[in-house]
Amino acid sequence: MNAATVSLRQPAQARQAEMVQAVLNLAAQQEPASITTTDIAKAVGLSQGAVFRHFPNKQAIWLNVAQWLEATLMPLVQTAAQSSPDPLTSLGNIFRAHLQFVQENPGVPRFIFHELQQPAASPVKQQVAAMLQTYSGILIRVLQQAKTAGQVSPSLDERSAATLFIGSIQGLVMQAMLLGSSTSIQPMMAGVWALYLSAIRQEVAP
Rank of each mutant, 00 (worst) to 15 (best):
residue 1 M to G: 15
residue 1 M to C: 01
residue 2 N to V: 07
residue 3 A to D: 11
residue 5 T to W: 10
residue 8 L to Q: 14
residue 9 R to K: 10
residue 10 Q to H: 09
residue 11 P to V: 14
residue 12 A to G: 06
residue 12 A to Q: 14
residue 13 Q to S: 11
residue 14 A to N: 12
residue 14 A to Y: 14
residue 17 A to Q: 14
residue 19 M to G: 00
residue 20 V to R: 05
residue 20 V to Y: 03
residue 21 Q to E: 04
residue 21 Q to P: 02
residue 22 A to I: 09
residue 22 A to Q: 02
residue 24 L to S: 06
residue 24 L to W: 03
residue 25 N to Q: 14
residue 25 N to C: 04
residue 26 L to M: 03
residue 26 L to K: 03
residue 27 A to T: 05
residue 27 A to M: 09
residue 32 P to A: 10
residue 33 A to S: 11
residue 34 S to Y: 04
residue 36 T to N: 10
residue 36 T to L: 13
residue 37 T to S: 10
residue 38 T to Y: 12
residue 39 D to R: 15
residue 39 D to H: 15
residue 40 I to N: 03
residue 41 A to F: 09
residue 42 K to F: 11
residue 45 G to V: 13
residue 47 S to E: 05
residue 47 S to I: 12
residue 48 Q to D: 13
residue 49 G to T: 06
residue 52 F to D: 01
residue 53 R to H: 11
residue 56 P to Q: 08
residue 56 P to E: 12
residue 60 A to R: 08
residue 62 W to L: 00
residue 63 L to F: 06
residue 64 N to R: 14
residue 65 V to H: 01
residue 65 V to I: 09
residue 66 A to L: 01
residue 66 A to H: 02
residue 66 A to C: 05
residue 69 L to Q: 05
residue 71 A to S: 13
residue 72 T to M: 11
residue 73 L to E: 05
residue 73 L to T: 03
residue 74 M to Q: 11
residue 76 L to Q: 08
residue 76 L to V: 06
residue 77 V to N: 02
residue 77 V to W: 02
residue 78 Q to W: 06
residue 79 T to M: 04
residue 83 S to K: 02
residue 83 S to D: 06
residue 87 P to C: 04
residue 87 P to F: 09
residue 90 S to V: 08
residue 90 S to I: 07
residue 91 L to P: 05
residue 93 N to M: 10
residue 94 I to T: 07
residue 94 I to C: 14
residue 98 H to G: 01
residue 101 F to V: 04
residue 106 P to A: 12
residue 108 V to P: 05
residue 109 P to S: 14
residue 109 P to R: 07
residue 110 R to E: 01
residue 113 F to D: 00
residue 114 H to F: 15
residue 115 E to F: 03
residue 117 Q to S: 12
residue 119 P to C: 15
residue 121 A to G: 07
residue 127 Q to R: 11
residue 128 V to I: 13
residue 128 V to R: 00
residue 130 A to W: 08
residue 130 A to D: 07
residue 132 L to Y: 11
residue 134 T to F: 01
residue 134 T to R: 14
residue 134 T to I: 00
residue 135 Y to V: 02
residue 135 Y to Q: 05
residue 136 S to G: 08
residue 137 G to H: 11
residue 138 I to M: 11
residue 139 L to D: 07
residue 139 L to H: 02
residue 140 I to M: 11
residue 141 R to S: 06
residue 142 V to Q: 09
residue 142 V to A: 14
residue 143 L to G: 06
residue 144 Q to T: 08
residue 144 Q to S: 12
residue 145 Q to N: 05
residue 146 A to T: 03
residue 147 K to S: 08
residue 154 P to M: 09
residue 155 S to V: 13
residue 155 S to K: 15
residue 162 A to F: 08
residue 165 F to Q: 02
residue 165 F to W: 10
residue 167 G to E: 12
residue 167 G to K: 12
residue 170 Q to K: 10
residue 170 Q to F: 13
residue 176 A to C: 09
residue 176 A to G: 09
residue 177 M to G: 06
residue 177 M to S: 12
residue 178 L to N: 07
residue 179 L to D: 00
residue 182 S to P: 02
residue 182 S to K: 05
residue 183 T to Y: 06
residue 184 S to G: 00
residue 187 P to K: 08
residue 187 P to M: 15
residue 187 P to R: 12
residue 189 M to Q: 15
residue 189 M to A: 15
residue 189 M to K: 15
residue 190 A to W: 04
residue 190 A to V: 12
residue 190 A to Y: 06
residue 192 V to A: 03
residue 193 W to C: 03
residue 194 A to T: 08
residue 195 L to C: 10
residue 197 L to F: 13
residue 201 R to L: 11
residue 202 Q to T: 12
residue 204 V to A: 13
residue 206 P to S: 15
residue 206 P to C: 14
